[in-house]
Design a protein around this nucleic acid. Structure first.
Lengths: 340, 340
DNA sequence: CTGAAAGCGCTTACAG
DNA sequence: CTGAAAGCGCTTACAG
């Protein structure tokens, strides 16, 4: 079934293509009767503009690109949902791509999106990303770029984040406040800003409460998996039987750690208290439920798109874009994995 | 930074646009020296074809659309990952949209994709979908359509599914085999084929093992949530203290149910055995871990895209497309929520 | 071996 | 109030 074109409508009505085009876009200089006729026929013939032609003329596709490290991930899929829902409201469609935490892949995905001529890009960085030329390319090509969650401070674009340091501080402080004296930390990889910040928040909370920071209580999770959590739980207890609290970079790892501690016969929270980070759905469903920091993924997605949209608008009107960093609220959710 | 066009290369080299275009596409009738010159300059100027122009000429966008009921969902996000990864290999980008289990939204999303002129569509139906004209429209517009997981038998397109009935039969049979006599079922909503099939598999397993089917042991979960599972666990035990096994439509609901049974002081699996469906990640992480049916989401995504790709190829070569239904293997994963 | 020309379907500045 | 014309950047059948 061939799609109806402006040409078809123009021929049937015996008017010009320009007139049809303008009638459909409600230009003020078209006769009211003509408009009515054109519109009626357009509806009858089920006319929709050929987006390929529109793109070529207007030089925009009403499509944005999103790159995240991993799809099968409670937090990131929540963000994606927020982005797509918000984008749809504004008539934008979303192409999603995954970096798999690989720098090479991330570069490639950026290129794919650029070659596709998306109007703008939303990205959460891979753990492996340490240089940022690929992101600068996006901006040099005149495409607005907004980073979310896993950002690079050095890149001069808008960002949507949480205050990881403060949130980690509160998580650790909660352990102190509920009586923990020897507090370990399972941190994320070395590069990402948020795993650095969460570590610094942990350290600061110890300092502020006169607990001596002991590097041997900090473990680096490179893959941030359930299995890593379990493994480090065993390792930790092997060498440090006196540990009574752990602040863990992400809920998934925390749940692995809880499983590990249980395997060792430890009771949570009596023997050891756990605080996670991110508030994954499963954290409320397990036993004992996990105390954690709520990280608003869906909202982050919405806010990130809204910011991108604002920049898209500004660009269209030739208004200079001044990068802005938007910080979202986090809250400590106290559950059963810490003492009362 | 303006993008390089064929025009730019042609001007610099003093040749025609046609020559440049053909040189870059390695047409056999272009001089070998000219080709070399063109290519070199193309690389220097970082030329990439303007996709909008290519789309308009070739009438295809190398983009496909995917509609799923829900993003934040272990199974569906695994499928999406499979689709996107496979599509990328073949040079296709993916636009994802969510129906939110709503028929109205699903229709709208189809329209958005059609108006965007995607080359093909992959869909898993919303629970609320009972009529299929919107899907027929896709095919009438000459766009290949492949359904996965939540399908409609009546629509004449390719499908990628599992054998829900057989899998449910095996799940229920496992309960019987491990000694359960009174087996309940928390089923999905009434419309979707897969919740019907899982119910039928449950029923057949009872029949085959001389257990009388008791409708009062079947509960309908309309939202398929954790909370529903918990609620029906309470309801079930309230009226049927003798139940010793439950087969549950989806892991998420099953985990809710486990929580409910635990609240009632029941021991799993001693007092009651549970089998879920889908093998969500968290099913292996909880205590006790959940016996379930493994449903290969990632693979389903890959296979669905591969099928769509094949149809796209056929269409291009004017070969008739004969719809095909591909069935993927499932396996019973025995864990701690059932007896040995 | 190279290029002029048509055309994909639309938008919009301009003329009348 | 309406329309002719140019042009977005590419592809490809055709001519030479």
């Amino acid at each position: 079934m061939k799609q109806t074109t402006l040409q078809d409508i123009a021929n049937t009505l015996g008017v010009s293509i320009s007139t049809v085009s303008k009638a459909l876009k409600d230009y003020p200089d078209i006769g009211i009767k003509t408009k009515a006729l054109v519109r009626e026929l357009a509806v009858t013939l089920n006319y929709t503009p050929n987006p390929f032609a529109v793109n070529l003329r207007t030089k925009q596709s009403k499509t944005i690109g999103v790159i995240i490290p991993e799809f099968v991930h409670y937090f990131f899929s929540s963000v994606i949902k927020g982005i797509i829902n918000e984008a749809e409201k504004k008539g934008y469609l979303v192409i999603t791509l995954q970096s798999n935490e690989s720098f090479e892949l991330e570069k490639r995905q950026i290129e794919l999106l650029l070659n596709k001529n998306v109007d703008g890009v939303l990205i959460s960085l891979a753990n492996a990303t340490a240089t940022f030329d690929h992101l600068k390319t996006v901006m040099e090509r005149g495409k607005p770029l907004v980073m979310f969650d896993k950002i690079a401070k050095i890149v001069n674009c808008s960002k949507v984040i949480i205050n990881d340091r403060e949130a980690a501080y509160n998580a650790t402080k909660h352990l102190v406040d509920t009586g923990c004296k020897r507090i370990a930390h399972f941190r994320g990889p070395l590069l990402p800003q948020n795993s650095i910040d969460r570590f610094l928040g942990y350290k600061k909370a110890l300092d502020d409460h006169n607990i001596i920071y002991d590097p041997s209580l900090v473990f680096i999770c490179n893959d941030m998996t359930f299995d890593e959590g379990k493994m480090f739980a065993h390792k930790l207890i092997e060498n440090h039987k006196d540990v009574d609290g752990v602040f863990i970079n992400t809920d998934l790892v925390a749940i692995g750690a809880m499983t590990g501690f249980k395997e060792l016969g430890l009771h949570i929270p009596r023997d050891i208290s756990i605080v996670g980070f991110s508030n994954w759905f499963m954290s409320s469903a397990i036993t004992p439920s996990l105390t954690t920091i709520n990280q608003p993924g869906y909202k982050m997605g919405k806010v990130a798109f809204k910011r991108l949209y604002k920049e898209l608008k500004k660009q269209k009107n030739n208004i200079e874009i001044i990068p802005k960093t938007i910080e979202l609220e986090t809250t400590l959710i106290v559950r059963e994995s810490t003492k009362t």
